[in-house]
C-alpha cells in the first residue's frame, strides 16, 4: 500500500478514526519510517489517541497530544508542538482529526502548510453501521461539511464498517460495497478496508487492500464470552 508523508483521518465521530490512526502509525513504523502521530481532536473528551500512548512509545512513534487529553480539564486546546508535524518533513505524520465538521475545524490552521507541501492523503473514514452515515446521502452531508470546515478536500475513502465486537466478515464486505458506491459519487478511490485482525483469515482475499487493525481494549468491558444473568421484573 502506498503512503504519503502526511495521512489525515477524518470523518463522522465514532467512525473509528483514532483506532485506525494508531494502527496506521504503527504500520508505517514497521516499514522502518520515522513516524509522528498528532491528536487534533478538540471534540471528544473520552477515548483519545493518548489511550495508546504506551504502545506508541514502545514502538518508537512520537505522539503529539494535548496535555489536557484524558484529564478533568475540558479544554479544546491544541499543543503548539503540532506545527512540527507540518514543518518537520523528515518524519511521516499521521493526523487524527476530531469528528464531524466541528472536529475538523481545528485542522484548518495547518491546512495552508499541508497544501503547500502537497504530499498528503486526506481520508474519509466511513462506517455504514453508524446511524447518521447509514445511507449515501447522509454520509455525503457529513463529507461536505468536513471539507467546508477545514478547507482540505478528501483524497480517498476508508471503509471501516463494523459493529464493534459483533463484526462479521460479511459486514466488512457489505461496507466495502457501500464505500465503493459512495466513492463513485464523490469521484475518489477507496484506499482500504479496515477490520479487526481476528477477521484477517476470512477477509484476506474478499476485500481489496485489507488493513488489519488491533482494537484498543477497555478493561472495564466484559471479556469475550461473558454472559448476562437473568433479568427480573
Amino acid at each position: 500500500m502506498n503512503h504519503k508523508r502526511l495521512t489525515l483521518f477524518a470523518g463522522h465521530y465514532g467512525s473509528g478514526k483514532t483506532n485506525i490512526a494508531l494502527n496506521y502509525a504503527l504500520w508505517l513504523r514497521s516499514q522502518g519510517l520515522k513516524v509522528t502521530v498528532a491528536d487534533l481532536d478538540i471534540v471528544n473528551p473520552y477515548f483519545r489517541t493518548k489511550d495508546g500512548a504506551e504502545q506508541l512509545k514502545a514502538a518508537g512513534v512520537r505522539l503529539i497530544s494535548s496535555d489536557y487529553a484524558n484529564s478533568n480539564v475540558d479544554l479544546p486546546a491544541l499543543p503548539g508542538e503540532a506545527y512540527s508535524l507540518v514543518d518537520d518533513k523528515s518524519a511521516c505524520g499521521v493526523i487524527d482529526v476530531g469528528g464531524d465538521d466541528r472536529g475538523a475545524l481545528a485542522l484548518g490552521r495547518y491546512v495552508p502548510g499541508i497544501r503547500e507541501e502537497n504530499d498528503y492523503e486526506m481520508l474519509f473514514v466511513l462506517n455504514k453501521a453508524r446511524p447518521l452515515t447509514r445511507n449515501i446521502d447522509d454520509a455525503l452531508e457529513v463529507f461536505y461539511e468536513i471539507e467546508a470546515a477545514c478547507a482540505l478536500p478528501f483524497t480517498a475513502i476508508v471503509n471501516n464498517t463494523n459493529l464493534g465486537p459483533l463484526t462479521k466478515a460479511e459486514d466488512v464486505i457489505a461496507g466495502e460495497r457501500f464505500a465503493q458506491e459512495f466513492a463513485e459519487r464523490v469521484k475518489l478511490p477507496v484506499k482500504m478496508s479496515c477490520a479487526s485482525e481476528k477477521l484477517s483469515a476470512e477477509l484476506q482475499n474478499k476485500v481489496s487492500n485489507f488493513f488489519p487493525i488491533q482494537i484498543m481494549q477497555l478493561y472495564y468491558m466484559e471479556k469475550e464470552g461473558t454472559s448476562l444473568g437473568k433479568i427480573n421484573l
Binding site: Y220, M221, E222, T226, G229, I231, N232, L233
Partner: peptide, 26 residues
C-alpha cells in the same frame, strides 16, 4: 427491575449498577 448473575449457589453477593456491574462481572 434487576438482574441476577451467578446467584444460585453464591455465598458472596456483589451489588453494582451501570458500568461498575460490568467491571464486577469480570
Amino acid at each position: 427491575l434487576w438482574e441476577e448473575y451467578m446467584m444460585d449457589d453464591a455465598e458472596i453477593c456483589i451489588v453494582a449498577c451501570g458500568i461498575t456491574a460490568r467491571v464486577s462481572r469480570n
